[in-house]
Simulated assay, not measured.
Amino acid sequence: MKSSKSLAGLASLSGLVYSTEAGRMCPACRQALTACVCGKPSLPKGDGIVRVSRETKGRAGKGVTLVKGVPLDEAELMALGKTLKTACGSGGTVKDGMIEIQGDHRERVIELLKKQGRWTVKQAGG
């Protein structure tokens, strides 16, 4: 026999998960997933300066160029990362709001970002 406390706990877990009108529903805000705003990340907040640096930590001595502080959403950041990687002729990735480009391409990346004229670009580190 279940106690009233455990039944009350189970009742709090229930909620609308799917609606025939809107499809899947967000359990937090109870809106359709397409209209949900609670789970969407906002643009990274910063001081408005894009910083370009070189880092070797955790990469077995291999250097990468990091671009941090670009105020773009994920899709635009991916497109900018692809453009920079192509211009540098190198591989890389976009993760955690940063663009990583394999190798030391700081000067070229700074030049390309300044040409766009959208942000203040500075070299960080040595």
Rank of each mutant, 00 (worst) to 15 (best):
G69Q: 06
G89A: 13
M98F: 00
R59V: 06
R106F: 05
G69P: 07
C26Y: 07
G15H: 13
K95Y: 03
A28N: 13
V52R: 15
A75I: 08
T83P: 01
A60P: 04
S3L: 11
M98L: 09
G69Y: 10
L77H: 02
R30F: 10
K85W: 05
T93K: 11
L72V: 07
K40S: 10
G63I: 11
A28W: 12
K85T: 06
A79R: 14
L13E: 12
Q102S: 08
R51F: 08
K95P: 00
I49D: 02
I101K: 00
M25H: 03
G89P: 10
V50Q: 11
G58N: 14
D96C: 06
G48E: 06
S6K: 15
L43H: 10
C29F: 12
G97P: 07
G81P: 05
G63H: 03
V52F: 14
S4G: 08
G61L: 03
V67C: 02
K57N: 11
A60K: 09
A28G: 04
E107G: 03
K62I: 15
G15D: 04
P27E: 10
G61N: 07
G63Q: 07
G89C: 12
G92Q: 09
G69I: 13
Y18E: 00
Y18M: 03
L80V: 14
T20H: 06
G46T: 13
S19Q: 00
S6H: 09
I99A: 04
R54S: 15
K85L: 05
E107S: 04
T65K: 02
G61T: 10
G39F: 03
G48R: 14
K62R: 02
V64C: 03
R106A: 15
S90R: 10
K5H: 10
G39I: 02
